[in-house]
């Protein structure tokens, strides 16, 4: 068994998915089923007063009995806002403590504000939250977040929703090598190969939303991502061959090659 373990809980899937940007709840549910994800992120927002109270709620479609819900702090630009959001999330989810912390620094790039992220992480850990933390791919910050007591480090591969893939595999590798807790790529995956590369580098998992939701066929892409994460993980565990630069090595034997016929 090669389980993904976070905050002491075992999961067979290493693909974590978001629930935003889908056309409707049917598409959300179908895509998430196809992805095989067991941990799914949700956002916390003001309820729309005056809307039809019989309208289905996200949690009716994706019940907490089936999935580990990971409430996020998307849209928060300060430690204070993020903490407030997660306290509300804990109340909403009956004391659930596994959360995704993200404190943004700028609405154009959605780049994390690591100073506020660290501030928030310190308080949330003291309040017994289990914090999976979105951060930049800075190995020093990652180490600090681990020391604070976060349960997983989730560096960006590139900007949120950009689909630009893994721009700095070297930094990711340093983070993976220098931390003991799970490292997940969060943000920037565009297609299946990006997810596979993250896993081949040794990431413990990948979290994505837009790469699936914004695909022409989200349900098929969800299935592709599931396979990519599994393939990348297997390739990592199998141990890739050493790279040879500037010289080839034939796959077929050199012995017994038919001699060149005289003309």
């Amino acid at each position: 068994m090669d389980d993904f373990i976070v905050a002491g809980k075992h999961y067979s899937s290493r693909l974590l998915v978001g629930t935003g940007k889908y056309k409707n709840f049917n598409e959300t549910r179908a895509a998430i089923e196809a992805s095989g994800a067991q941990i799914i992120t949700i956002a916390i927002r003001r309820t729309n007063i005056g809307q039809n109270p019989n309208e289905p709620n996200l949690l009716d479609v994706l019940p907490p009995s089936h999935y580990t819900l990971l409430p996020n702090t998307a849209g928060c630009y300060s430690a204070e806002e993020a903490i407030r959001t997660l306290r509300l999330a804990r109340e909403l989810l009956d004391g659930h403590s596994l959360v995704k912390l993200e404190v943004l620094g700028d609405p154009r790039t959605l780049f994390p504000n690591v100073v506020e992220t660290i501030k928030a992480a310190e308080i949330l850990v003291k309040e017994n939250f289990q914090v999976m933390v979105y951060t930049s791919d800075d190995p020093i910050i990652a180490k600090q977040l681990e020391e604070i007591g976060c349960v997983a480090i989730m560096p960006l591969a590139s900007l949120i929703g950009s689909g630009m893939g893994i721009l700095n595999p070297w930094n990711l590798q340093i983070i993976i090598d220098s931390t003991q807790i799970p490292v997940l790529v969060d943000a920037g995956v565009g297609t299946a190969s990006d997810a596979a590369i993250a896993m081949e580098l040794g990431c413990d998992g990948v979290l994505m939303n837009t790469a699936i939701a914004a695909a022409q066929n989200p349900i098929m892409m969800a299935s592709a991502m599931r396979k990519a994460v599994e393939a990348g993980r297997e390739a990592y565990l199998a141990g890739r061959m050493a790279k040879k630069t500037y010289s080839a090595s034939p796959s077929s034997p050199n012995e017994g090659i038919l001699p060149v016929q005289p003309k």
Binding site: V17, G18, T19, G20, K21, Y22, T28, T41, I42, A43, I44, R45, R46, T47, I49, N57, L58, L59, L69, P71, N72, A74, L88, A89, E91, L92, L93, I160, G161, L207, M208, N209, T210, A213
Partner: peptide, 25 residues
């Protein structure tokens, strides 16, 4: 806390925030 809903009487000037879970990444 939910257990307090019936016990808390609203006061003039109260500021309430009521939140739900929505789709997000």
């Amino acid at each position: 806390p939910r257990s307090q809903f019936t016990l808390q009487t609203l006061s003039d000037g109260d500021q309430l925030e009521i939140v739900v879970a929505v789709g997000g990444g």
